[in-house]
């Protein structure tokens, strides 16, 4: 761990004034950043502890619900407004990490958590995300956790968050602020594909602070699910996860939302596949068609080839769970 200076402002403006430099990082729950600092992967010179900023509220706003960047994952998961209107988000959050971690992890931190690629975490190896231009040692190596969609020859990492998969499905909007002003970023544009700049996980500019995530008013409280498939029953990152939500009217699906986790550098949404489902009756054969469409361009890296088939089955099952209104339970481990 490199030595660093530390400040703990109480006003957003103060925090923003200190931000911007290459070597400055915001510190929220620290559950990801501190780990990476210990491994010498992140080497900030200055830490701006943002946990005292007044960004820890969940507010009703006209267009929906505004979740402060410092709302804890556990508070968000158990907030009655979220549980009632966006139970998909609660489910996704409760599928992530462990209770202890969720008690420290924040909404903003979860959004900006970094990949779990083994090589990214180990400075003895070459990694373009950590060290642009160094090469990607994951390619041809251990790729169990890696992408099957949207990867590039420069990076095949996945975004590990569960929360973000639900937010992507719910059409969330990210609110950011910098010394020069504020802006909003649609969720799908927030995380990015690696391309030839895998060092950039998101479209956030240096010095920008995430202040909130907004959820549109549309509620999905009957037909939804978050199905997470992983290497143990709890406390493991997704191999593949599926967030599905829809409305069912007269036996016909409308407003279908489908996002995948664990498969790409960002939560993966496929609008064409959603369109394919909309206006039709829920049927397994149709779900399979949607899965085929989503995975048409999927490419394995060897050790993760199985994820293509796993994703296909998970999509079908997830859509089925959502259509039947039998969301996956977090406590009962039987797949609904």
């Amino acid at each position: 761990m490199r030595r660093f200076s530390y400040s703990r402002p109480t006003e957003v403006s103060e925090a923003l004034a200190e931000a911007g430099g290459e070597d400055v990082r915001f510190l929220a729950g620290g559950t990801n950043l501190v780990d990476l600092m210990k491994e010498n992967v992140e080497r900030p010179q200055h830490l701006v502890d943002i946990t005292r900023l007044p960004l820890d509220r969940i507010e009703e706003i006209q267009s929906g619900l505004k979740i402060g960047a410092l709302v804890l994952n556990s508070d968000l998961a158990h907030d009655p407004k979220v549980e009632n209107r966006y139970p998909l988000l609660s489910l996704a959050l409760l599928n992530g990490a462990s209770p202890q971690l969720r008690n420290s992890a924040t909404t903003g931190g979860n959004l900006l958590q970094r990949t779990r690629c083994y090589y990214f975490y180990d400075v003895a190896t070459a990694c373009n995300k950590r060290d642009p231009g160094a090469g990607c040692q994951a390619i041809g190596g251990l790729t169990r956790l890696h992408a099957i969609l949207g990867a590039s020859p420069h990076c095949i990492a996945t975004h590990p968050s569960d929360m973000c998969v639900a937010m992507a499905a719910l059409d969330a909007v990210v609110h950011v602020e910098s010394a020069t002003g504020t802006r909003t970023i649609p969720f799908e544009d927030f995380h990015r594909l690696p391309g030839d700049t895998p060092q950039r996980d998101t479209t956030l500019e240096p010095g920008e602070l995430v202040t909130a995530v907004e959820l549109p008013a549309t509620r999905f409280d009957r037909h939804y699910t978050y199905l997470k498939l992983r290497d143990r029953q709890s406390y493991a990152f997704a191999l593949v996860s599926v967030a599905a939500a829809m409305r069912l009217e007269d036996g016909v699906m409308t407003d279908v939302r489908l996002a995948l986790g664990g498969v790409a550098h960002k939560p993966w949404r496929d609008r064409d596949a959603e369109a394919l489902l909309s206006g039709k009756a829920p049927e397994r054969a149709l779900f399979s068609k949607a899965a085929e469409a989503i995975l048409a361009d999927a490419q394995g890296q060897g050790a993760n080839d199985f994820k293509i088939e796993l994703a296909r089955r998970a999509i079908v099952r997830g859509l089925d769970q959502a259509a039947r209104g039998t969301p996956q339970s977090v406590t009962d481990k039987r797949i609904a």
Binding site: R116, Y118, D122, A124, Q137, G141, L142, R232, K333
Partner: peptide, 25 residues
């Protein structure tokens, strides 16, 4: 324990990626 035999190194050297049973298992 997963090794990358190209570099002769264990790679999942932490408890997030080296899985042991948790209560739910």
């Amino acid at each position: 324990t997963l090794a990358d035999h190209r570099i002769g190194r264990w790679m999942n050297h932490n408890l997030a990626e080296y899985h042991v049973p948790v209560n739910a298992d």
